[in-house]
């Protein structure tokens, strides 16, 4: 662990409220929440951008909604088990409350014109935001020729693999892991 992260270790409540706030307002699914989380944490000075991408790669390799995994891993990195729980509760509570309110009180909410318009607008920016996140991750990576080739092959393989994407994910990870070791010997 670097000194910078120790110096700025946030407490349970500040982590909780950060994720609570993000989870309360973000519409559009996990891949949108991830860049928002990244920006928010970087702005607070809690975690460097490239460190977040390392966490994200690991979060991606485990089952579970990606936004939730990103939050628990970022929380753990920031403040150990306390931070993990803070991230978890922060992400889970707002939608849980919101969804029960909507289900009980506003059953026809989805049919209202302003709501439909809001959704159309909000979902229209999702491809742009996710692409920007991907490009930033590419920019911040420490590239080697082997990594570049593997990443290109992985991208093409997953695009054509359809429902086999997850097995392909692990095959790529395994091949990449072997190639990293072979280089160091």
């Amino acid at each position: 662990m670097s000194d910078a992260s120790k110096k700025a270790q946030p407490g349970f409540w500040s982590i909780f409220f950060l994720f609570f706030g993000i989870s309360s307002v973000i519409i559009g699914g996990g891949y949108v929440m991830v860049p928002v989380i990244q920006r928010a944490i970087a702005r607070k000075g809690w975690l460097a951008e490239d460190e977040f991408y390392d966490l994200f790669a690991l979060a991606q390799a485990l089952p579970g909604p990606i936004a939730l995994n990103a939050a628990t891993f970022a929380g753990r990195r920031l403040a150990g088990l306390r931070g993990l729980l803070a991230g978890f509760l922060g992400v889970v509570l707002p939608p849980f409350v919101a969804i029960l309110l909507v289900a009980v009180l506003l059953d026809n909410l989805a049919g209202l014109k302003p709501v439909q318009g809001f959704l159309k607008g909000a979902y229209a920016v999702v491809p742009g935001l996710v692409s920007a996140f991907a490009v930033n991750m590419v920019r911040k990576r420490n590239w080697t020729p082997v990594r570049a080739v593997l990443t290109c092959v992985a991208s093409i393989a997953m695009i054509v693999s359809g429902s086999w994407a997850i097995p392909v994910f692990f095959v790529v990870a395994a091949v990449a892991w072997l190639s990293e070791g072979w280089k160091r010997c």
Binding site: T151, A165, V168, V172, A176, E180
Partner: peptide
């Protein structure tokens, strides 16, 4: 840890998954 062997291996695969996500848009 950042930059470790496993983390770098997962990054290649994760970028592939992100590429797939972007493509799916």
């Amino acid at each position: 840890a950042a930059g470790s062997r496993l983390s770098e291996a997962l990054k290649s695969a994760t970028l592939g998954l992100l590429a797939m996500t972007v493509w799916a848009f």
